[in-house]
């Protein structure tokens, strides 16, 4: 049985089920990350002392990664816009750039984690590092998930373009919404963990 209303809008909601579904999923993600931000506030308020993030972490690396992730969001909207202009080659170019930037983000994050481990900063070292590794680790898992989905759409998933352009464009819109959310979370994680 096919899932209804994934190509055309459902008359009573005015939305495709794809779009409503991804937004409801993102709402649940807000609560997932919200609980962790709330834990951060609680831990910090109750802590007798709290390190300044910029004295523990590498701010230039964090800034670079912020720019990389925002860049990947920009290439993602361009990938979606390319499909709207009936340009599959443009889509592949921008989607490839999005995946490349996502992987670059992970590489930089990997260097940061390795450096922390080398100088003996582990999740169990103190409360600040515990919440740092928990939040950035969960965020990194979201990046990995996005890379897997986006790679599928760049490769085998793009065959759908030949059979159903609208459905494929809707899929990329949903993947884009998820990707922008991952970017959005980082926009808050970066100042909270690195700068304050």
């Amino acid at each position: 049985m096919d899932i209804p209303y994934i190509v055309d809008e459902r008359p009573d909601t005015g939305l495709t089920n794809v779009k409503l579904g991804i937004w409801l999923f993102l709402a649940s993600e807000v609560m997932l990350f919200g609980a962790l931000f709330s834990s951060y506030v609680l831990l910090r308020l109750m802590a007798p002392e709290w390190p300044v993030g910029s004295e523990v972490l590498n701010v230039p690396m964090g800034t670079f990664n912020t720019a990389v992730l925002i860049g990947s969001s920009v290439t993602m909207v361009f990938a979606y816009a390319s499909l709207q202009m009936d340009d599959l080659a443009g889509f592949k170019k921008f989607m490839g750039a999005t995946i490349g930037l996502s992987l670059l983000f992970m590489v930089v994050k990997g260097f940061e984690y390795t450096h922390e481990f080398q100088i003996g900063n582990f999740p169990w070292t103190n409360t600040y590092l515990a919440i740092y590794f928990t939040m950035t680790g969960l965020h990194a898992l979201h990046i990995i998930g996005g890379v897997i989905v986006n790679t599928y759409f760049l490769g085998p998933g793009s065959k759908m373009w030949a059979t159903n352009k609208t459905q494929f464009t809707n899929r990329i819109e949903a993947a884009g919404l998820y990707w922008h959310f991952v970017d959005l979370v980082w926009i808050f994680l970066f100042p909270v963990l690195y700068l304050l």
């Binding site: 939305l15 409503l20 937004w23 709402a27 709330s38």
Partner: peptide
């Protein structure tokens, strides 16, 4: 209100609650 905006407003309310619970406790 559209379903997306509507569900986001409800989410934002609950988000504010969980963020302010520790602050109010403190």
């Amino acid at each position: 209100i559209g379903l997306i905006i509507g569900s986001l407003i409800i989410t934002a309310l609950f988000f504010l609650v969980i963020i302010f619970v520790p602050v109010m406790g403190h």
